[in-house]
Computed example of a mutant assay.
Amino acid sequence: MPVIRQVVFLYLKIASLIRSSLQSLWRAQLPRIAFLVLSTMIVGGLVVLGIERHHNEQFKDVEDALWWALITVTTTGYGDKFPITGWGRVVTGILIFTEMGLVSVFTATIASALTERRLKEAKGLGKITAVGHIAICGWNPNADNLIGKLTEVGHTEDIVLVNTLSEETVQDVILRHPDASIRFVRGDFSMESTLRQANVGDATAVIILADVVGGDQEKADERTILGTLSVKSINREVMVCAQLLSKDNEPHLQRAGVDDIIFTGDYTGYLLASSACSPGLTQVIKDLLTTDRGNVLKQVNIPKELVGRKFLDLLLHFRRSQVTPVAIISQNRGMSMEDMLTDDFSFIDQFIKRKFSEAGKEALFHVGGGIQVQVNPPDDYVIEPDDRAVVITLEKENQP
């Protein structure tokens, strides 16, 4: 299925590229120039046919005339057909010089139209025709990380940036992410016209960042809410993931129709990327990290009868209570004063040990301790005496 999905999106990407190129050529009046080239070639061929058909066996019908005109106009020059009358040669000369000029204009128009299109896209002025892309609206320090995470989670379609960054800054972003297909639309993402230019109606998802570039940081949440309303007015079915700075604005964003809300933090980039590419994953994370949704992560003691047994036995034991272990935390005890100063050591060691014991500080001295965490341990992992389990359990349930 992933291969089929990539083939489908590759086909859509090529079709989108062809469509946008044809639109650029149409706006450049290329069809009119092409019609002029073709009609001149046909008229020239028919005129030569009328002149040569009674004097030249090479021109017997319209097919011969059109074939000769095509070969002459394209300067292929097979030499299988050529006029032998004076007027036929005069018309041929006129046709060659006329078509040379027209064909030059034709090719120049194609080059100019495609070059103009590329320049507009680089400046963020082009119309996006991509389908199945992800639009990232706004910009802040999390955006670079977000683009990288989108690539890591397997997003292969276009990423369309919608913001007010300079052309040079956007080019730097593109260079930092060579594996991502990045397009750019310059403008205010809270305006519907800008979003239509980014073709958000055909996007897979729209990610709206807390924009600290497009204006006052205190109004970033306001722009996020306006941007969500604009996206939903274009297509209510498109997935919208938004970043908020203040939790007080969450009700307003929900009323705007947002699908997922991420608050600013260390894992903002990962959560936004996951929300866009794997809908529902952030809800699972939120469910585990908050105490008001039922399931929580807890660190619990491991029953003594399971010490020395395998992790699979621990899993089966906890599942009988609707509890799921997901990690093992190992506490290395380290070396205490008791370990360093033994009873059969020197008189000085005995003296030091007695002084620590009198001060009540013996249990506080440890060397080389530490915590090791193993997420999703293998089934044959052997439980150690100092191990504790991290489990998913219901908040109201007692510790296993």
Rank of each mutant, 00 (worst) to 15 (best):
D292E: 14
L315W: 02
E305R: 09
R293F: 00
N295W: 07
R320F: 01
V323Y: 09
Y270D: 06
I329L: 13
T291G: 11
N301F: 01
S274M: 14
K304W: 00
N295A: 05
T291C: 00
R293W: 04
K286I: 02
D287K: 15
K298Q: 10
V296S: 08
V300A: 07
V300D: 05
K304F: 05
L289Y: 04
V307M: 09
T268L: 08
L281Y: 10
E305D: 14
T324P: 03
G269A: 15
I328P: 05
T290M: 01
T291Y: 02
S321Q: 15
R320D: 07
F318P: 00
S275W: 08
V326R: 04
I285C: 07
A327R: 06
S278F: 12
Q299T: 14
N301I: 05
V307K: 12
Q283T: 13
L315I: 08
D313C: 00
L312N: 09
V323I: 15
G308K: 13
D287I: 01
F318A: 07
Q322W: 09
N301Q: 07
I285T: 15
F311M: 07
D287E: 13
A276F: 06
N295S: 05
E305M: 10
R293D: 01
P325Q: 02
I285A: 14
L314V: 14
D313G: 00
G294N: 12
L272A: 10
Q283D: 10
Q322E: 14
T268A: 15
G294V: 13
L314P: 03
R293P: 01
L297T: 08
L297C: 09
I329Y: 11
I285M: 12
P303F: 10
R309T: 14
E305G: 02
V326C: 02
K310W: 00
R309Y: 08
T290Q: 11
T268C: 08
K310H: 08
L316A: 08
Q331Y: 12
T282C: 10
I302G: 00
S278N: 06
K310Y: 05
R309G: 10
R319Q: 14
P279K: 01
F318N: 06
S274H: 14
R309W: 02
L288K: 08
G308N: 12
C277Q: 12
L272G: 06
K286A: 06
L306P: 11
L316C: 01
L271H: 14
Y270P: 00
I328V: 15
N301R: 11
T324R: 07
D313M: 02
S321I: 04
S275Q: 09
G294Q: 13
P279Q: 02
D292M: 03
L289V: 04
P279G: 02
G308P: 10
V300K: 02
L272C: 13
I285N: 04
K286Y: 10
L297W: 11
Q322I: 05
L312T: 10
K298S: 13
L297F: 13
T282G: 09
G294L: 10
D292P: 03
H317G: 00
Q299K: 15
E305L: 06
N301E: 05
V326Y: 05
V284S: 11
H317M: 02
L306V: 06
